[in-house]
């Protein structure tokens, strides 16, 4: 085939919507680079990076549950503020952290919460009179609580995910007595995801590079689903090969990992601090209710 690498944009169509293939390639590419950047972030020198991944895994659970139990929007906001401070102390730019959290989970929550603030959905005394769309006091409070709760949960989870290498996470799971077969599967899944995402990105870029005009919707769809089928075939073939490769190196049904990060007393001190923070938040929350 004669490939000349002409893109719609080169033909003066710069204001055209980016093609489907390009959009997919870019979003997949963003995910790949996110995985690679996480690796850098997780090995940077910072507060959270120095903590044993086991302590962090337990903390992620602890804070997710805490965020779900708090009732005061103030305390939920405080949780997010704590996450921001920890981000700053852990070589994570607070700005990009906040942008990520508010841009995805936060934005969605806002969109969902706004209609619920009206008296139509949540009856109660009027706070903002807007005729039929008047906002009720419990509605507004509920909407604010929902948004802050979503942001606080997503923030703490993301912060810990960003400061923990995937391999350390797996090591932590092993040492928390998660069955080896699960850890092994997770390890392989992550690696294969990166590899399949790269394939997917290449497929879409290759398509983009020889597309001059986009075809009909049905043609595009056939192409997309055909590529999905390709990914399926490749996966199943790879699964067989990987299994052989594991057997060849003595795989006997269980994975073993060497603990390279040694947990110390300090890590448990951090975990205790996290637990104390969570308990304090919950305590204040309950006190505020009375």
């Amino acid at each position: 085939m004669c490939e000349r690498d002409i893109r719609p944009a080169d033909l003066g169509g710069g204001r055209l919507r980016p093609s489907l293939a390009r959009r997919t390639a870019e979003s997949v590419g963003r995910h790949v680079s996110e995985v690679l950047e996480n690796e850098d972030l997780a090995t940077a020198d910072g507060l959270l990076q120095r903590i044993d991944p086991r302590a962090k895994l337990l903390a992620i659970l602890l804070f997710s549950v805490t965020a779900s139990l708090l009732r005061s929007p103030w305390l939920l906001a405080a949780m997010f503020a704590i996450a921001l401070a920890l981000a700053a102390a852990s070589a994570v730019s607070p700005l990009s952290f906040a942008r990520k959290v508010w841009g995805s989970a936060g934005l969605l929550a806002v969109l969902l919460a706004v209609p619920a603030a009206t008296r139509l959905v949540t009856p109660g005394p009027v706070l903002v009179p807007l005729g039929a769309l008047s906002l009720s006091t419990p509605g507004v409070l509920g909407a604010v609580t929902l948004v802050l709760r979503v942001v606080a949960s997503a923030g703490t989870a993301l912060l810990i995910v960003w400061t923990m290498r995937w391999s350390d996470l797996l090591g932590a799971l092993t040492r928390l007595k998660v069955p080896d077969v699960i850890v092994a599967t997770l390890a392989m899944t992550q690696k294969q995801i990166v590899s399949l995402m790269r394939t997917t990105q290449q497929i879409h870029l290759a398509r983009e590079s020889r597309t001059i005009a986009e075809g009909s919707v049905a043609e595009n769809r056939d192409w997309v689903t055909g590529r999905m089928a390709f990914v399926v075939r490749k996966s199943i073939k790879t699964a067989d090969d990987v299994y052989d490769a594991m057997l060849a190196r003595g795989f006997s049904g269980s994975m073993c990992l060497v603990a390279r990060v040694q947990g110390g007393r300090r890590d448990w001190a951090y975990l205790a601090a996290a637990a104390a923070t969570a308990a304090a938040l919950l305590g204040i929350d309950r006190a505020m209710l009375r």
């Binding site: 290498r165 995937w166 391999s167 797996l170 390890a187 392989m188 992550q190 690696k191 590899s195 790879t238 090969d241 990987v242 052989d244 490769a245 594991m246 060849a248 190196r249």
Partner: peptide
């Protein structure tokens, strides 16, 4: 010991 043709297949750890 077996060195597979496709290194991507052989490297399955983190």
């Amino acid at each position: 010991g077996f060195v597979f043709q496709d290194a991507d297949v052989q490297l399955f750890c983190s």
